[in-house]
């Protein structure tokens, strides 16, 4: 995998690769928390991710 600094930002293919990397991260984060907390019920999953349903725009 290329480092982000090597990504040419205007390249659609690179944007897709970066997006896939983020989606893998998103999924792996849920998996890691499930392992850490022994399990994540549907309510736990919604609680973990709910801020991200409500949050729009802005990179903080």
């Amino acid at each position: 995998m290329r480092l982000h600094s090597e990504v040419r930002m205007t390249d659609t293919e690179d944007m897709t690769a970066l997006a896939e990397r983020f989606l893998d991260l998103w999924q792996d984060n849920v998996r890691a928390w499930a392992a850490e907390r022994d399990l994540l019920t549907p309510e736990d999953l919604a609680d973990l991710l709910k801020d991200h349903i409500q949050t729009g725009g802005g990179h903080d």
Binding site: F22, W26, L45, A46, H52, T55, G57, H59
Partner: peptide, 13 residues
């Protein structure tokens, strides 16, 4: 839940 929330998560990286 997993995939609908993902786009919002990008903004919180």
């Amino acid at each position: 839940t997993l995939w609908q929330t993902a786009p919002g998560g990008l903004a919180r990286l």
